[in-house]
Design a binder for these strands. Structure first.
Lengths: 334, 334
DNA sequence: TTGTAAGCGTTATCAT
DNA sequence: ATGATAACGCTTACAA
């Protein structure tokens, strides 16, 4: 790699002139500019980003923390969308999985700070308060995606999870279901409770019986859909409709029913959530509550970008609406 | 962020002593070390990685280039596994998608070089020769995963794709199939041709008729499985077994058959390839030829790591064996 | 318009 | 064993 010095020498100018040509910050005489540009081309010179970053205190880097799991397809799209948007803005993405280990998560965030990252996108950190503490002194732009921080000073990009529950419930109501169950995600996660609330209240408003006994707590994994089916098959109550709070669990539910000779949707209707790519790639295809991942990721990056450029983020919480996709795993009763 | 200077001042030593304590390169008196360490802790000092990287010419960063696509689940696991291994070795991962655009790919690799990355992992670059040219001058450790470079000087981690074809064919032979088709990936990709060869030759050795007419070229996407079924349904020839060169296409095939009232595997056996997580999460579960992604990714990172440490990579090509997973989309004839 | 020089936060060479 | 100091490659006052 050639350096500015070499370019300067070849062009017969000082290194600051080279810098000026590159950043065209200050006017440079046309003739010298040409000379410098020729030298740059000849040496195939590209500014070193570490040196630049050290000097201007910006690594031109954005960090993304995701909960590490191959099995959560939703996060695969997150990474994809975020990377696209980040690179569109001329930044690079530095990726870190927090495998639900607060220590390695902290270590990663530490690294980010030490790299003079220009922004950090957090999705599902394992220890919110610790992260906040780490970020406290350094005024690095941050945005939380998918799960809001309780600390309202950090901007977040979230789904209207309550509304997701409403959409799922409404669908069941329209299709005249009366005996309904819900398989939630971990209930210590507030978005799961929000989804639950929307679901519960909508059913209640329509005078459909739905109690604590009809709520089952899962962990967002496929297996927990399977386990759930085993559990309810051993009970006397026969549900006609089930909402799983993510597609993976819904798929587990459907598959285990199918394996046991049930017909979906004739015997039982199932709705998922997320609208991952596989939900339309199965038979029967999955009816689900979708999240506008692509838009959410774009917004997350925009929020970081605005902060970088010193714009005041007025809105602290960017709420997106879920959409309902009616496919083949649900049908009308009777 | 505090700097060495501040630590030095607080500890009452010179900044070089601080550096020595941190890197314990040179012996430092126990008493001063303690003092310095106390200062470090007190200031919560962490070395700036840009400054360090600039000085020692190592960004402690490894770049990963993947073909950008949400829909290829296999690459989601790639990213996951690579990140784990990279971070285990104390490096960070900087991620870039090459959306089949040689220019943005080149730009990304350029960035990597300018960041003093310590290694680059390439999977499916769109323009091999260009990448090689870019890397030519800079002796950055490189490894190619999933697809070997024709230039044998670059180490690669690959699957024995020929063997994958053999495994698929063998299974069909054992199950007494005679009328067999294959849906390949893009045939300009050599690994697709390798898979094809293993498949074809094995069938030939067992005197099973299999001609060019039974080979269909797909593009690794779900839709191409669907299209394939449409195509063969309009022909007179009735296949009893199909090998798709990846799971996504296999799933497309199966689903379209199911939608048209066929029974899988009774009417037709289907084998996929990759063993993505969803292949075991469907009904019927997918019989497939698996790739040991986890091991391959670990090896790729190890190969980079060895190069970084100056070890001579003797073997230039690390070949992994596929494994066969017999599940529910295939059955014996008659 | 251009050049000189200081400084970003390290490491490494040289004295001491 | 420790401290000055140059250097890594860049940006940016300040001077000219």
């Amino acid at each position: 790699m050639s350096s500015m010095k070499e370019v300067a020498k070849l062009a017969g100018v000082s290194i600051s002139t080279v810098s000026r040509v590159i950043n065209n910050s200050v006017p440079v005489e046309e003739e010298t500019r040409k000379r410098v540009e020729k030298a740059i081309k000849k040496l195939n010179y590209k500014p070193n980003l570490l040196a630049k970053g050290l000097r201007i205190k910006s690594g031109r880097l954005i960090g993304l923390v995701v909960p590490g799991s191959v099995y959560n397809h939703a996060f695969a799209s997150f990474i994809d969308y975020i990377e696209s948007n980040v690179s569109n803005k001329g930044y690079n993405l530095i990726l870190g999985h927090n495998r639900n280990d607060p220590d390695s998560e902290a270590e990663f965030i530490d690294m980010l700070i030490r790299r003079n990252v220009d922004g950090i996108i957090l999705s599902r950190v394992s220890d919110e308060s610790r992260v906040l503490r780490m970020l406290g002194n350094n005024k690095i732009p941050v945005v939380v995606i998918d799960r809001a921080f309780s600390d309202e000073s950090v901007p977040s990009v979230v789904l209207d999870n309550y509304r997701a529950g409403v959409l799922a419930a409404k669908h069941f109501i329209e299709e005249r279901h009366k005996v309904i169950a819900c398989l939630t995600g971990p209930l210590n996660i507030s978005l799961c409770r929000d989804r639950m609330e929307g679901f519960r209240e909508t059913l209640k408003n329509h005078n459909i019986e739905f109690s604590e006994d009809d709520i089952y707590e899962g962990d967002f994994k496929y297996e927990s859909g399977v386990d759930f089916v085993k559990k309810i098959m051993s009970k006397k109550k026969r549900y006609t409709a089930i909402w799983a709070q993510n597609d993976l669990m819904a798929i587990g539910i459907i598959n285990h029913f199918l394996k046991n000779g049930y017909n979906i949707p004739k015997d039982i209707s199932v709705v998922g959530m997320d609208d991952i790519s596989f939900s339309s790639m199965m038979v029967p295809s999955l009816t689900t509550v979708g999240q506008p991942f692509s838009k959410m990721c774009k917004t997350a990056v925009d929020v970081i970008y605005d902060q970088i450029r010193g714009k005041n983020i007025l809105k602290k919480r960017f709420v997106f609406q879920p959409y309902f996709v009616s496919r083949e795993t649900t049908m009308r009763i009777g």
